[in-house]
Protein backbone atom coordinates (compact mmCIF):
# COMPACT_ATOMS: atom_id res chain seq x y z
CA UNK A 1 0.00 0.00 0.00
CA UNK A 2 2.78 2.40 1.00
CA UNK A 3 4.72 1.51 -2.08
CA UNK A 4 1.78 2.27 -4.35
CA UNK A 5 1.36 5.60 -2.60
CA UNK A 6 4.97 6.59 -3.06
CA UNK A 7 4.94 5.54 -6.70
CA UNK A 8 1.82 7.58 -7.20
CA UNK A 9 3.34 10.58 -5.47
CA UNK A 10 6.50 10.28 -7.52
CA UNK A 11 4.47 10.34 -10.73
CA UNK A 12 2.53 13.42 -9.62
CA UNK A 13 5.63 15.30 -8.52
CA UNK A 14 7.58 14.41 -11.64
CA UNK A 15 4.71 15.49 -13.87
CA UNK A 16 4.27 18.71 -11.95
CA UNK A 17 7.98 19.47 -12.15
CA UNK A 18 8.13 18.66 -15.85
CA UNK A 19 5.14 20.86 -16.60
CA UNK A 20 6.57 23.69 -14.51
CA UNK A 21 9.85 23.57 -16.39
CA UNK A 22 7.90 23.70 -19.65
CA UNK A 23 5.90 26.66 -18.45
CA UNK A 24 9.07 28.46 -17.46
CA UNK A 25 10.67 27.83 -20.84
CA UNK A 26 7.51 29.01 -22.58
CA UNK A 27 7.60 32.24 -20.59
CA UNK A 28 11.09 33.12 -21.80
CA UNK A 29 10.11 34.22 -25.35
CA UNK A 30 7.39 36.42 -23.86
CA UNK A 31 9.99 38.10 -21.64
CA UNK A 32 12.91 38.20 -24.07
CA UNK A 33 10.83 39.89 -26.77
CA UNK A 34 11.09 43.10 -24.75
CA UNK A 35 14.88 43.18 -25.00
CA UNK A 36 16.36 45.32 -27.81
CA UNK A 37 15.51 43.75 -31.15
CA UNK A 38 18.08 42.84 -33.80
CA UNK A 39 17.53 46.04 -35.79
CA UNK A 40 17.95 48.15 -32.66
CA UNK A 41 21.17 46.39 -31.75
CA UNK A 42 22.49 46.98 -35.26
CA UNK A 43 22.10 50.75 -35.07
CA UNK A 44 25.16 51.14 -32.94
CA UNK A 45 27.41 53.90 -34.19
CA UNK A 46 27.44 57.56 -35.15
CA UNK A 47 30.23 59.54 -36.83
CA UNK A 48 30.81 63.13 -35.78
CA UNK A 49 32.86 65.82 -37.52
CA UNK A 50 34.76 67.77 -34.83
CA UNK A 51 36.46 70.35 -37.07
CA UNK A 52 34.02 73.25 -36.37
CA UNK A 53 34.58 73.06 -32.60
CA UNK A 54 36.98 75.65 -31.17
CA UNK A 55 38.46 75.13 -27.69
CA UNK A 56 35.83 75.89 -25.08
CA UNK A 57 32.96 74.83 -27.31
CA UNK A 58 30.67 71.84 -26.90
CA UNK A 59 28.18 69.97 -29.03
CA UNK A 60 25.56 67.43 -28.16
CA UNK A 61 24.96 64.54 -30.56
CA UNK A 62 22.36 61.81 -30.33
CA UNK A 63 23.62 58.25 -30.06
CA UNK A 64 21.41 55.27 -29.26
CA UNK A 65 18.68 57.72 -28.38
CA UNK A 66 20.80 59.42 -25.74
CA UNK A 67 22.72 62.73 -25.78
CA UNK A 68 26.49 62.48 -26.06
CA UNK A 69 28.42 65.51 -24.85
CA UNK A 70 31.53 66.36 -26.85
CA UNK A 71 33.64 69.17 -25.46
CA UNK A 72 36.78 70.69 -26.92
CA UNK A 73 38.48 71.45 -23.61
CA UNK A 74 40.60 74.52 -22.97
CA UNK A 75 44.10 74.06 -21.50
CA UNK A 76 42.81 75.37 -18.17
CA UNK A 77 40.03 72.82 -18.08
CA UNK A 78 42.46 70.03 -18.88
CA UNK A 79 44.78 71.18 -16.16
CA UNK A 80 41.94 71.41 -13.67
CA UNK A 81 40.79 67.94 -14.57
CA UNK A 82 44.25 66.41 -14.28
CA UNK A 83 45.07 68.17 -11.04
CA UNK A 84 42.06 66.87 -9.12
CA UNK A 85 42.86 65.45 -5.71
CA UNK A 86 41.92 61.74 -5.64
CA UNK A 87 40.47 62.19 -2.17
CA UNK A 88 37.87 64.62 -3.53
CA UNK A 89 36.57 62.10 -6.02
CA UNK A 90 33.60 60.02 -5.03
CA UNK A 91 34.10 57.65 -7.97
CA UNK A 92 37.87 57.75 -8.42
CA UNK A 93 39.14 57.80 -11.99
CA UNK A 94 42.14 59.78 -13.30
CA UNK A 95 41.38 62.09 -16.20
CA UNK A 96 43.70 60.05 -18.42
CA UNK A 97 41.33 57.09 -18.16
CA UNK A 98 38.43 59.21 -19.33
CA UNK A 99 39.88 60.64 -22.53
CA UNK A 100 41.84 59.31 -25.50
CA UNK A 101 43.00 62.79 -26.43
CA UNK A 102 42.92 65.29 -23.51
CA UNK A 103 41.53 67.99 -25.78
CA UNK A 104 38.38 66.02 -26.45
CA UNK A 105 36.07 64.93 -23.68
CA UNK A 106 33.36 62.60 -25.01
CA UNK A 107 30.78 61.24 -22.63
CA UNK A 108 27.15 60.21 -22.32
CA UNK A 109 25.24 63.24 -21.09
CA UNK A 110 22.94 61.40 -18.76
CA UNK A 111 23.18 62.03 -15.03
CA UNK A 112 24.05 58.82 -13.23
CA UNK A 113 21.57 59.64 -10.50
CA UNK A 114 18.17 59.29 -12.18
CA UNK A 115 18.78 59.94 -15.85
CA UNK A 116 18.26 63.67 -16.30
CA UNK A 117 20.38 65.69 -18.75
CA UNK A 118 22.93 67.89 -16.91
CA UNK A 119 23.41 71.55 -17.88
CA UNK A 120 26.75 72.93 -19.00
CA UNK A 121 26.83 72.47 -22.75
CA UNK A 122 25.96 76.09 -23.47
CA UNK A 123 28.07 79.02 -22.29
CA UNK A 124 25.09 80.47 -20.51
CA UNK A 125 24.30 77.25 -18.63
CA UNK A 126 24.97 76.75 -14.97
CA UNK A 127 28.15 74.68 -14.79
CA UNK A 128 28.20 73.83 -11.13
CA UNK A 129 30.86 74.36 -8.51
CA UNK A 130 33.61 72.61 -10.51
CA UNK A 131 32.96 74.47 -13.75
CA UNK A 132 31.88 71.34 -15.55
CA UNK A 133 28.26 70.22 -15.63
CA UNK A 134 25.41 70.61 -13.24
CA UNK A 135 22.30 68.47 -13.08
CA UNK A 136 19.32 70.65 -12.16
CA UNK A 137 17.07 67.74 -11.14
CA UNK A 138 18.76 66.92 -7.84
CA UNK A 139 21.87 69.10 -7.83
CA UNK A 140 24.75 66.88 -8.91
CA UNK A 141 27.97 68.70 -9.79
CA UNK A 142 30.39 67.27 -12.35
CA UNK A 143 33.91 68.56 -13.00
CA UNK A 144 35.69 69.31 -16.27
CA UNK A 145 36.31 65.60 -16.70
CA UNK A 146 32.67 64.76 -16.11
CA UNK A 147 33.39 63.26 -12.72
CA UNK A 148 30.87 63.48 -9.92
CA UNK A 149 32.04 65.88 -7.20
CA UNK A 150 28.97 66.78 -5.22
CA UNK A 151 25.35 65.73 -5.04
CA UNK A 152 23.43 62.45 -5.09
CA UNK A 153 24.81 60.94 -8.32
CA UNK A 154 26.86 57.84 -7.48
CA UNK A 155 29.13 57.64 -10.54
CA UNK A 156 30.98 59.73 -13.08
CA UNK A 157 29.32 60.48 -16.39
CA UNK A 158 29.68 57.39 -18.56
CA UNK A 159 32.24 57.29 -21.36
CA UNK A 160 30.97 55.61 -24.55
CA UNK A 161 33.15 53.50 -26.79
CA UNK A 162 34.61 55.63 -29.55
CA UNK A 163 37.51 55.83 -32.00
CA UNK A 164 39.12 58.72 -33.80
CA UNK A 165 38.93 57.89 -37.50
CA UNK A 166 41.25 60.86 -38.18
CA UNK A 167 42.24 64.10 -36.44
CA UNK A 168 38.77 65.59 -36.51
CA UNK A 169 36.37 62.69 -37.04
CA UNK A 170 35.19 60.50 -34.23
CA UNK A 171 33.03 57.38 -34.47
CA UNK A 172 30.95 56.75 -31.38
CA UNK A 173 29.88 53.18 -30.68
Amino acid sequence: MDETDSRRNFLYIATGAFATVGGGLAAWPLIHQMNPAADVLALASTEVDLSPLAPGQSITVKWRGKPVFIRHRTPEEIELAQAADPDDLKDFQPDSERVQNPEWLIMVGVCTHLGCIPLGQKDTDAKGDWNGWFCPCHGSHYDTSGRIRKGPAPENLQIPEYVFLDETTVKIG
Binding site: W28, P29, L30, H32, Q33, M34, N35, A37, A38, D39, V40
Partner: peptide
Amino acid sequence: VLNMHYVPTAEGAFASVERIMRDVNFGWLI
Protein backbone atom coordinates in the same frame (compact mmCIF):
# COMPACT_ATOMS: atom_id res chain seq x y z
CA VAL B 1 3.16 41.12 -26.36
CA LEU B 2 2.69 41.53 -30.13
CA ASN B 3 0.97 44.85 -29.58
CA MET B 4 4.17 46.15 -27.98
CA HIS B 5 5.79 46.02 -31.43
CA TYR B 6 2.88 46.48 -33.80
CA VAL B 7 2.35 49.85 -35.51
CA PRO B 8 -1.35 50.47 -36.26
CA THR B 9 -0.98 52.76 -39.26
CA ALA B 10 -1.62 52.07 -42.93
CA GLU B 11 1.99 53.02 -43.69
CA GLY B 12 3.64 51.10 -40.88
CA ALA B 13 1.53 48.03 -40.15
CA PHE B 14 2.87 45.58 -42.72
CA ALA B 15 6.50 46.49 -42.09
CA SER B 16 6.02 46.29 -38.32
CA VAL B 17 4.68 42.77 -38.64
CA GLU B 18 7.70 41.83 -40.75
CA ARG B 19 9.92 43.43 -38.14
CA ILE B 20 8.27 41.21 -35.54
CA MET B 21 8.99 38.20 -37.77
CA ARG B 22 12.62 39.14 -38.35
CA ASP B 23 14.09 41.39 -35.68
CA VAL B 24 12.08 41.12 -32.48
CA ASN B 25 13.45 38.40 -30.20
CA PHE B 26 11.27 35.30 -30.73
CA GLY B 27 8.83 37.56 -32.58
CA TRP B 28 8.27 34.92 -35.28
CA LEU B 29 7.37 32.36 -32.62
CA ILE B 30 4.98 34.65 -30.80
